[in-house]
Amino acid sequence: MSTPPQQPPSSPQQPAQPPDQPPVIPAQQPQAAQPPQPTAYPYPNPQSPPQNPYAQPTLVNQPAQPQQANPYAVQPGYGYPPPAAAPSGGTNTAARAVLWAAVGAVVASAAWAAGLFLTGGFGDKADLRGYTAPANLCSGADYSSFKEEYPVDDSSPTKNAMKDPALDESVCSLSLKKTGSSYADAYLSILVDLHKKTDPGPEFTAAWKNYGDSHTDYDVTPVQGIGDEAYLVTQDTSNGSTTSGSRYATLAVRDGWMTYTMSYSAYLSSYESDTNPPTLDEVTGWLKSDTKATLEQLKG
């Protein structure tokens, strides 16, 4: 709300001043106090004009004008403060302080960048260790250990491949058949991922090491001697039966930024009554042997 104009107070006639004395300037009317403007600049605003002691006084019969915000004033948190203007005929103390502040900021930025470089903050190079993701993983993988139990080849396995600047991936899914079987007795799935932008290590460990926490009735066992880390995940719901339930096993491996899984699953109801399905110990042995052979082939 603006203040209504004030009437000029009546005052007695001012006596004439001697000619050799400077004129007496009437005192300015007090202005409404303005709250200080926030700023990240620690020194007086160089763009604010100096106060003129001989400026004309504000007319008392005019309402006080609100102070206009400086559109060029430095706002908190945005960039560096502008260099201070050198005072006429004096030492540029403020300018030198700002110069040293700017130099300090450059040095700090250089140290920050060097730290990121040393710690890999700008992005690590993918550690693929010579692995490839073939277009046809079904022909590029080794699963010969399963051939004695399942000698019949799958005539139409499912295979897919993808290449992207961030990820190369190959997938193979095939049916395992015993001699004389009309339908699949078991299934084998193989997956290889080449992570080219991000290190899969932490997420791989979290997902497979804790698989039993997120999936009910699965056993997780660390495996030594394959890649940087490997986990064997198994489940057997047959309860000793050879005609009901299922058996499942997956060997998951990480070697550098390459991840690999080979998974086996069998539904025992599909087996003939006079045959016994392989035990989990047999299956896990096949998975370990064929995984080692496949990883060697994927490096070639």
Rank of each mutant, 00 (worst) to 15 (best):
P44Q: 00
L268Q: 06
Q235P: 03
S246G: 10
Y264S: 04
A293T: 11
P22Q: 07
N160P: 00
I25D: 00
V152F: 07
M162P: 00
P87W: 03
A114F: 09
T259E: 08
F146V: 09
D153N: 15
A27W: 02
A94W: 03
A252W: 00
T261Q: 11
K288F: 00
G256I: 02
D290S: 12
V192L: 09
D290T: 11
A230Q: 06
K209P: 01
P42R: 00
A141L: 07
Q47C: 00
A207F: 04
P9R: 03
D127R: 11
A101C: 00
Q37N: 01
T250N: 12
Y187L: 06
P23M: 06
D236F: 02
Q17S: 13
K292E: 15
P12G: 11
S109R: 02
N61M: 08
M1C: 07
R247S: 01
S155W: 02
T91R: 03
V283R: 08
A95Y: 13
Q56V: 09
Y150A: 01
K292G: 10
V192S: 07
G115S: 15
K299P: 10
S244L: 04
K159H: 14
Y231N: 03
Y43S: 01
Q56Y: 11
M162F: 13
K197R: 15
V60E: 01
S48C: 01
Y267A: 01
G115C: 11
G256Y: 05
T91W: 04
T291P: 10
T39G: 01
A133P: 08
A102R: 13
G140V: 03
S244K: 08
T119Y: 14
D199F: 06
K196Q: 13
A105S: 09
E296F: 08
M162T: 14
N210E: 10
Q297N: 13
L167E: 06
P23F: 05
G240N: 07
Q65M: 12
V106Y: 03
C138N: 14
V103F: 13
D255K: 00
P82T: 04
P66W: 03
D199Y: 07
T259K: 02
Q6I: 12
Y267G: 01
A101N: 05
A135C: 04
S139A: 15
P76Y: 00
P15L: 04
Y150C: 01
A166D: 13
N239G: 12
N61E: 12
N45I: 00
T58P: 10
